[in-house]
C-alpha cells in the first residue's frame, strides 16, 4: 500500500462499513455464533494514515480456532485471542475474535468495586484488553447493534477511567522515585530517562481522566489536541516532551523541573 491513503479516514471507514460483512462471509471469517461485529481503531477515530489498517472486532459465543490464524495470549479464559489478517481492496484488515465471556471478564476487571477493593486495580489488564475496551467506546457496529449498545453502556458505567488513571499515576510515582534515587547516586543520565517515562505516564493519567483510555504514546499528540486539558496545554506538553530547556551541562536541573511539573499535574488529575 502506498504512503498516501487511497481514501481518507471517513471515506475509508464508510467503505469498510459497506464491505465488512460480505468480506468476512466470503473468506469464511464470520462464525455462526457471532454476536456482534464492529469497526474501530485509528482509521475510525479519524487519526489513521496511509499505513493504518482497519480494525474489525468479531464477538462470538465460543472461541474461534482455525489453522493459519494468528494467536495472542490474554489473561482471560480462554487465554487465546485470535487475529486474522486479511486484505480487502488493497486495505489490510486485522480481524480480532473475542468471546462474549472474555468481554464479561474484562468488564469485571474495570467494575467500580475493583477500585475500592484493590490497590492493584488495572495491573492485570493487558495492552490487548486495554485497546479492546478503549476501542469499544468509539466503534461502529455493523452487526449485533443490541449487544454493542449494551456493552458500550456498561463501559460508560464502569470504573475504567479511575482505575486506569490511578494505575498510570502509580506507575509514574515509581519512575519518580527511580529518578530521584538515580540523581542521589549520581546517575544523572538514567534519571533523565526515568523522568521522561514518569512524565509520559502522568500525561497518560491526565488523558485517561479526560476519557482517552488507550495507552499508546504515539497517539499522545492527537489525544492532547482532542482532549485539550486545561492542566496541560499542548504547547507546554510539547516543550517538556521535546526537552526544550534541557541543558546538557546541568541535566539535573531539567530532571527536577520535570518532576515538579509531574507533581503539579498530579494535583490536577482527578481520580474518579
Amino acid at each position: 500500500m502506498s504512503d498516501e491513503p487511497a481514501l481518507r479516514g471517513t471515506e475509508r471507514t464508510a467503505n469498510a462499513v459497506r464491505l465488512t460483512l460480505d468480506a468476512l462471509r466470503s473468506q469464511e471469517l464470520l462464525p455462526d455464533d457471532t454476536l456482534c461485529v464492529y469497526l474501530s481503531g485509528s482509521v475510525v477515530r479519524g487519526w489513521g494514515n496511509g499505513t493504518s489498517d482497519i480494525d474489525v472486532y468479531v464477538i462470538t459465543e465460543s472461541p474461534r480456532r482455525r489453522e493459519g490464524a494468528h494467536y495472542a495470549r490474554v489473561p482471560l479464559d480462554p487465554e487465546l485471542l485470535v487475529v486474522e489478517v486479511v486484505h480487502v481492496e488493497d486495505e489490510r484488515w486485522d480481524v480480532e475474535y473475542w468471546t462474549d465471556s472474555q468481554v464479561d471478564q474484562m468488564m469485571a476487571k474495570v467494575s467500580p468495586s475493583m477500585l475500592e477493593s484493590s490497590d492493584f486495580a488495572g495491573e492485570d489488564i493487558s495492552t490487548d484488553e486495554r485497546d479492546f475496551l478503549d476501542r469499544l467506546g468509539y466503534g461502529i457496529a455493523i452487526l449485533g447493534e443490541e449487544w454493542f449498545s449494551r456493552r458500550q453502556a456498561a463501559l460508560q458505567k464502569s470504573g475504567i477511567e479511575p482505575i486506569f488513571t490511578a494505575h498510570a499515576l502509580n506507575i509514574a510515582d515509581g519512575y519518580t522515585e527511580d529518578a530521584l534515587g538515580m540523581l542521589g547516586s549520581g546517575d544523572v543520565e538514567s534519571a533523565v530517562i526515568a523522568v521522561k517515562i514518569a512524565f509520559g505516564w502522568i500525561v497518560d493519567a491526565l488523558l485517561v481522566s479526560e476519557g482517552e483510555l488507550a495507552q499508546n504514546p504515539k497517539w499522545r499528540p492527537q489525544k492532547l489536541l482532542r482532549a485539550a486539558p486545561a492542566a496541560l496545554p499542548f504547547e507546554r506538553w510539547w516543550e517538556i516532551e521535546t526537552m526544550q530547556g534541557f541543558d546538557a551541562e546541568a541535566p539535573e536541573r531539567w530532571v527536577r523541573s520535570v518532576l515538579g511539573a509531574c507533581q503539579e499535574l498530579s494535583l490536577e488529575i482527578s481520580v474518579g
Binding site: 519518580t176 530521584l180 518532576l259 515538579g260 507533581q263 498530579s266 494535583l267 488529575i269 481520580v271 474518579g272
Partner: peptide, 14 residues
C-alpha cells in the same frame, strides 16, 4: 515541596 511527595486528587479530595 519534596519531589517524592505523592499527590492524589480523589474527586476534589486532595
Amino acid at each position: 515541596k519534596r519531589l517524592d511527595a505523592r499527590v492524589r486528587n480523589y474527586q476534589g479530595n486532595v
